[in-house]
Deep mutational scan, measured.
Amino acid sequence: GPREVTMKKGDILTLLNSTNKDWWKVEVNDRQGFVPAAYVKKLDSGTGKELVLALYDYQ
């Protein structure tokens, strides 16, 4: 199956793709996968990378 990404509340993840309104593709610890968009919030990183903050645990 697809590689699952797990996250804990407060984690910072790299946002790869947010074109789908329900599932965003993120990368964390060299793993890529989809997380519910409602579970993360975009951060203003000030760099080229888009980052998101995990609002809830997800696994």
Rank of each mutant, 00 (worst) to 15 (best):
Y58K: 01
D44I: 11
E27Q: 12
E4M: 13
R3A: 13
K49R: 12
E4T: 15
K42G: 04
S18E: 10
Q59Y: 13
R3Y: 15
Y58V: 02
E4I: 14
W24N: 01
Q32I: 15
L53C: 06
K42A: 06
A38Y: 08
D30E: 10
K25W: 15
T14E: 07
V35C: 03
D11W: 06
N29M: 08
P36A: 04
L55W: 02
V28R: 09
L51G: 02
Y39I: 07
Q32R: 09
F34T: 04
M7K: 00
K25S: 07
L13G: 07
L16I: 14
Q32N: 06
K42N: 05
N20M: 07
T6A: 13
K9T: 06
A54P: 00
N20G: 10
Q32L: 07
R3E: 11
Y58G: 01
K49T: 11
A38D: 09
E4C: 14
K41T: 11
V28E: 05
V26A: 01
K8D: 03
G10F: 04
V28G: 07
T14L: 14
Q32F: 09
L43P: 01
D11C: 05
K8E: 05
A54M: 07
V40I: 06
I12Q: 04
V35L: 03
R31E: 09
N29S: 08
E27Y: 06
F34G: 01
P2H: 13
V52A: 10
V26M: 00
V26H: 00
G1P: 13
D57Y: 05
P2W: 15
G48C: 06
N20E: 06
G33R: 05
Y58I: 03
W23C: 08
K8R: 11
L13I: 06
Y56H: 12
D11P: 00
G46E: 13
L51C: 08
L16C: 05
Y39V: 05
L13M: 09
I12C: 04
K8W: 07
V26F: 02
D44A: 12
G10L: 01
G48S: 09
K49F: 08
T14G: 05
L53Y: 08
K49A: 10
K21I: 08
I12Y: 05
N20K: 05
L53P: 00
G46P: 14
Q59M: 11
M7P: 01
V35N: 01
R3W: 15
T47Q: 13
A54V: 12
D57L: 03
V40T: 03
N20F: 06
Y56N: 09
K41M: 14
K42Y: 07
L51N: 05
K49E: 11
R31P: 01
L51T: 09
K8I: 07
V5P: 04
N17K: 06
I12T: 06
D44P: 14
